[in-house]
């Protein structure tokens, strides 16, 4: 027994983690060693200091809160994708034989699929090659957007190079608005294209053919759903020039009551006045104007509606 050994085991001595004979040996050493006794006293005082750490008590509220949060977490676990793995496929996880059978089945399916697609493989390659090798004209290249180059292989024999790339070719469609392909693309552009400038240009092209039912629906759709207020405003002006009908009237009322942009709501008031002057004032228009005059968040829209009601004699 020496002082270093005792120092190393002093914490264990205080925690009562030593065997009886070890404890007896250390006590014997301590009885005859003043510096080790001082070290033990010092550590005991440190323990007394550590005992002053405030006791943390879990409040009932915190426990309840934690249990509630856990319940929510468990609910989502039970109904999430993990639940499928946990509950739906336990056999596969716990039966190595089933796992092996699944792996084998997947491999066989892979081979089967590969074999089945083998006749088409050449055609796919040819398709890609066709684009590369069929003499892409420089004018085509100008209209092509290269999204990635996967291989550049110099050919030492010919001194040439073979480039494999992914590219999108720009296509220009030209034709009458009566052409179903043109109509399809235009309707796509109105409903789904990200660029508001393109959508506005498209709607410009459509407004002169608003008697076409497909374009009419596209214009009304844009008036209700286009995310850009400027586009909605232009469409609203175009809709005003459309032949009056119930669907136009309904769309204008919706714009008045629900459009998020006050400029569009003001334009909707003007459009409704025009509509009413042509078709006469109906109850739904009067009610909508009265409602918006009272509740709209924008004072100018409220004033505009009130004036419209006076103009319409309501």
């Amino acid at each position: 027994m020496n002082c270093q050994k005792l120092e190393e085991n002093l914490p264990l001595l205080l925690y009562g983690e030593l065997s009886t004979w070890e404890q007896a040996a250390y006590e014997e050493h301590l009885a005859g060693c003043a510096s080790c006794r001082a070290a033990r006293e010092k550590l005991e005082r440190i323990h007394q200091v550590l005992a002053q750490r405030p006791q943390v008590e879990v409040s009932a509220a915190l426990l309840a809160e934690a249990r509630m949060a856990l319940d929510e977490g468990l609910e989502s676990q039970q109904h999430g994708w993990r639940a499928l793995w946990r509950n739906g496929l336990p056999i596969l996880r716990f039966q190595p034989a089933s796992g092996f059978a699944l792996a084998l089945t997947l491999i066989l399916c892979g081979f089967g699929l590969g074999w089945g697609l083998r006749p088409h493989a050449g055609r796919l390659t040819a398709g890609v090659g066709e684009l590369n090798n069929a003499g892409v004209a420089s004018s085509d290249l100008e209209n092509m957007r290269i999204s990635g180059i996967s291989r550049v292989a110099p050919d030492p024999q010919t001194g040439g190079v073979k480039i494999t790339m992914d590219a999108e070719r720009r296509v220009t469609l030209e034709g009458s608005l009566d052409d179903p392909k043109i109509q399809q693309v235009l309707v796509y552009a109105v409903k789904s294209y990200d660029n508001p400038g393109i959508r506005r240009d498209t709607l410009d092209a459509l407004r002169s053919h608003a008697d076409n039912p497909i374009f009419r629906q596209a214009l009304l759709y844009a008036m209700r759903h286009d995310p850009n207020a400027g586009v909605r405003l232009e469409v609203l002006e175009a809709v005003c020039n459309m032949k009056s009908s119930d669907d136009v009237h309904t769309a204008l009322l919706e714009a008045l009551e629900h459009d998020t942009n006050p400029g569009v709501r003001v334009a909707a008031v003007d459009a409704l006045i025009d509509h009413t002057e042509k078709e006469g004032c109906d109850v739904s228009t009067a009610q909508a104007l009265e409602h918006v005059a009272k509740t709209d968040s924008n004072p100018y829209v409220r004033l505009k509606c009130a004036n419209a009601m006076m103009k319409l004699g309501k």
Binding site: V56, E57, V58, L62, L63, E65, A66, A69, L70, G73
Partner: peptide, 23 residues
């Protein structure tokens, strides 16, 4: 929860540890 609170000090963090552990 008590152990977590003792370790992290903040009730919010202790609650998060409690939830993470039991999940």
């Amino acid at each position: 929860l008590r152990l977590a609170l003792q370790v992290v000090g903040s009730p919010e963090e202790a609650r998060d540890l409690y939830q993470e552990a039991f999940l």
